[in-house]
Design a protein around this nucleic acid. Structure first.
Lengths: 201, 201
DNA sequence: TTCGTCATGTAAGAAGTTACATGATTAA
DNA sequence: TTAATCATGTAACTTCTTACATGACGAA
């Protein structure tokens, strides 16, 4: 982010992250930003100085160095791209749905779908606003990706809701009125073997 | 996972996580699984004993207690559901695309799309295999969610690729042949104010 | 006899959060 | 004058990974 060349403070970076990066790659806490900036300066990738913000506030701004520019270019061009990391507590809860109730699950999914709609709207507004600056081309592209991502998340949540609704209805109406079946994790090992055999064919 | 009632080892849990949970909520390392199982036992949520695996191997199996069942039910029914956490290095790289080249970005996106297709296929196979056990109903529902998620990820990556391709072509063909414009992060603060004003209307 | 898998565990450290402390400015 | 925002920072702690150590079994 420092490679954008302007002098920025840790506070600025947090706001920036909340605005855009947050939608496709989390927003770090203030404390982490401040300590990372110190590390970056120690590595010689940036220099800092105290600057007056609005009305002489306490404000330390950072500026990238030649070494920093070099390092970030190497990162952008050659660093291996890690696979995406997703932790989805909503789907996790659904996967252990037999410990909950269909109604609870459906409520959770509706709330999730609503939250996704809100986020979609917010990132759309912000992406449009960022559009006034042509230099933000790539940042806007990523934000529009996030917009579509939220739309897809919403659709997937609603599909999941329908599926649970259908399964619940089928179970309630079905012949089996005894306790809900308990899955066996050991079964996984058997399934694994069968799939391995299938794939080796 | 212990709530599935069967006696399982840490090793089993890792395999299980790699199979299913991994696709919507990461798979912990062996070392973490082993230490968490110890914590769980210390809390009285499970008991353990040494058991003979295939051919008298070193194997510690865990079994849930009444306290554990109670705790997991409370979790499933009442624990707040955290928002999904996504770290997407591919989109992050795209967002800082001005530090890379359009060709590099497009290559990265093609590779990502291919990986998503592979994962979609794998989770589909596994979900189908799990289908032989009716008790896995909810686990399968989550795996089918993952299948659709991967398909959507692939589609989004290809859209992003097209967008970058179009922007690149427009830039190359355009009147501006000078250096690529440098965005200014400080601009974000101005944009933020404008949006805040717009929303307060 | 060698390699891959099964199987458990420890230690060090990276990555990241929450809570707390501090103090100035601005708007209601 | 009070609450919100601006602004930086430290300390304690949680979460999680990597590297390493150990050893048995099964198949080639």
């Amino acid at each position: 982010m420092l490679a954008y060349e302007e002098e920025v403070s840790g506070y600025d970076l947090k706001k920036w992250a909340d605005w855009s990066v947050r939608h496709y790659y989390w927003s770090p806490s203030f404390s982490q930003i401040y300590s990372e900036l110190k590390r970056i300066e120690q590595h010689g990738y940036a220099t800092s100085r105290m600057a007056d913000g609005d009305g002489g506030r306490n404000r330390r701004v950072y500026k990238i160095t030649d070494d920093g520019r070099r390092a970030v270019r190497i990162w952008a061009l050659y660093a291996p791209v890690d696979p995406p990391m997703l932790k989805h507590p909503v789907v996790l809860r659904a996967a252990f749905g037999h410990l909950s109730t269909p109604d609870k699950l459906k409520e959770m999914l509706r709330e999730h779908a609503d939250r996704m709609a809100d986020l979609e709207h917010r990132v759309a507004t912000d992406a449009e606003a960022a559009g006034v600056e042509p230099a933000w081309a790539y940042a806007r592209i990523a934000m529009r990706w996030a917009e579509r991502y939220y739309a897809s998340e919403r659709a997937l949540a609603l599909e999941l809701l329908d599926e649970i609704d259908a399964a619940d209805a089928a179970f309630t109406a079905g012949t089996k009125t005894d306790t809900f079946p308990q899955p066996r994790p050991g079964h996984w090992r058997e399934v694994e073997k069968q799939v391995a055999e299938q794939e080796s064919d």
